[in-house]
Every structure is written in C-alpha cells, then in structure tokens.
Nucleic acid binder design. Sequence first.
DNA 1: CTGAAAGCGCTTACAG
DNA 2: CTGAAAGCGCTTACAG
Lengths: 333, 333
Amino acid sequence: MPVAGRPTSKDVAQEAGVSQSTVSLVLGGKWSGRVSPATARSVRTAAERLGYRPNQAARNLRLGTTRTVLLMVPTLTAPFFGPVYTGAARVAARHGFGVVVSTWPDGADGPAESPFPAPHEAIDGVLASSMPAVALDRFHGTPAVLLDSGPDADVPTVDFGVAAGMRAIAAHLAGLGHRRFGHVAAGVDQWTFHARAEALAAEVAALGGTLERSACAIDVASARDAAQRLLARPDPPTALVCDDDLIAAGAYKAARALGLDVPGEVSVTGFDDVLLATALEPELTTVRLPAEEMGAQGMTALLELLDGGRPAPRVLPGRLVVRGSSAPPRAPL
Amino acid sequence: MPVAGRPTSKDVAQEAGVSQSTVSLVLGGKWSGRVSPATARSVRTAAERLGYRPNQAARNLRLGTTRTVLLMVPTLTAPFFGPVYTGAARVAARHGFGVVVSTWPDGADGPAESPFPAPHEAIDGVLASSMPAVALDRFHGTPAVLLDSGPDADVPTVDFGVAAGMRAIAAHLAGLGHRRFGHVAAGVDQWTFHARAEALAAEVAALGGTLERSACAIDVASARDAAQRLLARPDPPTALVCDDDLIAAGAYKAARALGLDVPGEVSVTGFDDVLLATALEPELTTVRLPAEEMGAQGMTALLELLDGGRPAPRVLPGRLVVRGSSAPPRAPL
DNA sequence: CTGAAAGCGCTTACAG
DNA sequence: CTGAAAGCGCTTACAG
C-alpha cells in the first residue's frame, strides 16, 4: 500500500501490522529479548518494501544530539585540509557521524554574514585545525579537539612532530656537509611555524652551523623574494630550509634566477610532502606529514571526548623523504 | 533566572513574561502587525540575556526541511574541490543553508560502510561535481544540480567552457607557429576530458595540423611516461597540450629527461591554473577555470530549484593565461 | 513479547 | 495584539 510522501515509522508499523514502538525497537537494534524474531523480520521486510529511512531531525530532537561535528579550518584551498577532512569523515562515518566544514576567520558562514542561525549551531563537537585556542571561544563549552595547533591547550590535541621533522632535515643536510643554513620561513602566526623555527635554530646551533632567516608569505612569489635575499648575502647559505613545499618552489625560482643549480650549488628542502613535491624538478627533499591520519586521530579523540573520556594529547611523527633537491655543498673554490 | 541546560523558547517566554508562541513569532521575524513593538523588544532582550539559540532539530522536524545541502565530489584531495566548496558554502550561508561534503564513489560515508543512516539522508538538495548523472540515482528525487559533468542531464547544470578553452590553447600555439601537436590526455571517464579531447581534435584539424594522443592517469609519473611516448616518436610534436596542470608537470619531466628545453624545444600547456602552474619553472601557460565561481553558481541554481524554479544550464568561460611554457617552435634544422 | 503514551522544541493555524 | 493547542517523527520508560 503506497504512502503519500516519505514513509515514517508509523507507515512501517501499519504495513507490518505492529505498533510504531515495535518498529522503533527493531530498527534501532534494541529488540533482542523484547520482540520475537518473527515480528522483527516482518518489520524489516516492511521497512525495506516501503524504502523507509528514519527522519534524522526527529531522532536528533528526541535524543538531543545531532551526530554531526564541525571541522573548522583556516582555508579549504590549501592542499593540506582535503586529506584532514577525508580522514576525519572516514572515522566519523564509522560511528554514524557526519562532518560539516567551515572556514575561519575568513569563513563563508557565521552570524556576521548571515541573518540565519549558522548551521554549525547544531553540532555535537568541534574539530579545529591550525587555529589559536581562542577560535574555540565562540563554541563556549562544546566538546572540541585542536589539530595542528600546539599541545598547550585545555582541550585534547593532535599535532605533528614538526620539531623532530625539522631536526631530521637539519641532520640530513649536516650529514651532507652543510654548515651555512638559510631558513625561508613562513611569516604566519601559527604554532607549527613557530615550532619549526625553534627546532631548526636549536639543531643548527647544536651542529655548530650558522643560520640566517628570511620570512615570507605562503606563496611562490613571496618565497622567491625571501630566498633571493638569503642567496644575495655576502656569505650565502649552501642549504635553504623552507617551511613548506610551496615555499620551496619559490626557493627553486630564486636559485634559477641567480643561475644557481639545485642541488649542485644550493640544496633546498620543503615540509609537508604535498603533490607539488614530486611535480618539481628536481623532486623535493621534504618531511611527509600524515594529514589524513591527523584527521582520523582527531576525530577518534573527539568521539572519545563525546563519550565522556579524556583523550591524551597525540603527536604524529613526520618522515624525512630524501629526493633530488639535497646534495653535498659545492667544495669551496 | 538561570535555566538548567540550553535555554529554549519556553525559557525566553517565561523570562519575557509572554507566551512561547509570541517568542517564536518575534524571533522568526513574523511579528509585524501581530505583536506590539514593546513586546517584541522585551522578547529580544530576554533571548539575548539567556543566550537563546533555536534548536535546529526541532525547527527541521516541524518544517520538514534541513537547510542543508550535500556537496558530492569524487575526491577532496584534488586542488579543484576546495574552491568549489568555498564558493558553494558562501552562497549557501547567505541563505541560511549549510553544506556537508561527501566523496563518491570512494566515499567516506554511505550505507555500505556504516550501520548508521548516512548523514546525508537529512538534506534538502544535492550538488554533485564531476560525476556521471547516475551518481544521483541514490538520491531518488532529491533536488540536484550537476557541476562539471556536462550539459546533457535532466537536472540543472553548471559547466566550464572547456571546449572554448581548448580552442584558445590550440589557437595560441598555432599562432606561435606550431603544427604538430601532442595531446597528453587524462584517461579518465569524465565529461570534461571527453570535451577537451574533442575540442582539441576539431581545432587542430581546422588548423591543418597533426595530433597524436597519449593517455595517462592524473599523476605526475604516469603523465611523464605518456609525454615521453609522444616525444620519442620519429616526428615528435613541437607542442604538448596537457589535460591539466599536474599532467603538464609530468610533461616537463619527460622533456627534461630527453634533454629538451621548455619552451625552447617543446612547448607545454596545462589546464585549470591551480597553484602548481606558477610553482613550475618555466611558469605554465594554461586555462584558468573559475572553480569557486562554479561552486557559487551551482548553489545559486540549487536554491532556485528548491524555490520551485527551473534554472537554465550555465557555462562559465575559462581564460587563457599565457606564461613562459609556450614559445615558437624551433626552426627545422 | 507488545502497545499506548509522553515528550524532545519548534511553527503555525485557530480562537479570542 | 496575544495565547492555548496541535503536531512534525522519533525514542523510551511504563504498563500489561
């Protein structure tokens, strides 16, 4: 018997000849010992025949939950955040959660731009990536996990081992014989870049090398200029350590503009290991960060938190990937 | 008077000394002529004092709507989809809609992987990008708009003018003097790549040139091999037309492996104009596709559809961006 | 083993 | 101009 509009549990009940509560019990998987197997079967059959799908809004209203979490990122146009989302959504789906995305602070949504309540008012938790802790203020009290934002927060955190990654880069270059380092640094006020700068400075000092620093925005042209400033010094670095792969692409350009061969005359390293790293020529020595794993671990921590747990801070190690952009320095003339 | 838990419209009513329906009327903006301005003001004050936010689940249940649309994309790790999302979310937010993302067919969610109802069961509409029309089957009847999937669908569409873009590439190269073309083609069964191939073939034929085609996956290594096959022919092309920027990066590698200078000995063009295009050396001649605009226009069309309209198909023109990777062919020896 | 009933928090006729 | 009431579709005590 066809039903007008989308079928409800009441329609299924009528079709199966049982009460609506029985339908709910069976389809909710809470029937064993309470409903006879035969009845359960007939409910399932009826539900299938009618193409019944439970109404989420009613379920949410009744349970006071939305099974939706918000992933907040600074931008979706950087290659880093796609994988983070993918990992988070994978874990979320396994637990019946959906993930909505918003960008902040330049976000597409939010009360400032819209007269409507922002969609993220209806969420159970927040996953915020690459943000200062104050970004969580607007969610007063909503369970939250911070990703890639540093371990010093009063919510659970998941971070990359960027300090160890930078040390691995420096050790690799030092092993090749480099002593004069240039740091083409992202001039961006995020924990990860502060941590990278600090670790590099400490490691170079420990190795007895010298380090000059030049800051830039995270774009190719700005990185090229910053790298050029370093290479134009009287006693230029033999290795340019770049804060990410895109910046490294700018360093390549600076080297080429000055007629310097990479890696013959100057070594260049990146960080992140995005697609770009192997698209460049020579391919880039860099540190691979498990972005998708960060999304997955972050969601796992958030679900633990929603479950009443106290997930411990996690640190995901990066891995040095040596490719063609690093080599021993040219012997002094 | 503090209220336990999150305040409801009933709490606001009590605080303001009015009925709950009056609160709903005022806060829903439907009060003019029905509630006195003074009462309205006191309701607003009470709501603010209590930090009241309407419960979306209740609202959705009552209205039978979710104000949520699903953006379905093949993958989130390609650089194209971040901007599409951003544009869609911007327009959606202006109309009080949220956007959830899912990937298909390799999706993180969906009934196959999860015993729970997929979150996207609770949506008002679907925006599907770079998909065959059959991808919409599982949403039987949900209003949908197809992006970047070709104009031949029985739902509204938004596409790029890829044919015109390819013609512009071919005309540009022909203007430089090229006659022997190689097409490093994405061997991916998507409308956009079929359209690119067809347009290029037609234009080269019209110009009286020759065209060889070599297919590859959309990754650097596969593209390099495909380009190498073309360049190894007895009478190799003087220009490699690549189906996207990443493929062009592979073509650069093939040229370098054979000791061929770009653009001195072989010209290379891309498509899309992603970040990579200016990270390469030389910078890539390509066609810029307005991805964010596609997201925005798609959402506009979907909202129109939800409003009962019949949005016309839209085509967003690309723009040829000439950079350093294209030059006149080397004079025959 | 099964069903009648309450109630989640809204919006919107309907009655005054 | 304002309020009492119905009802959206669920889940879950509660009663039998």
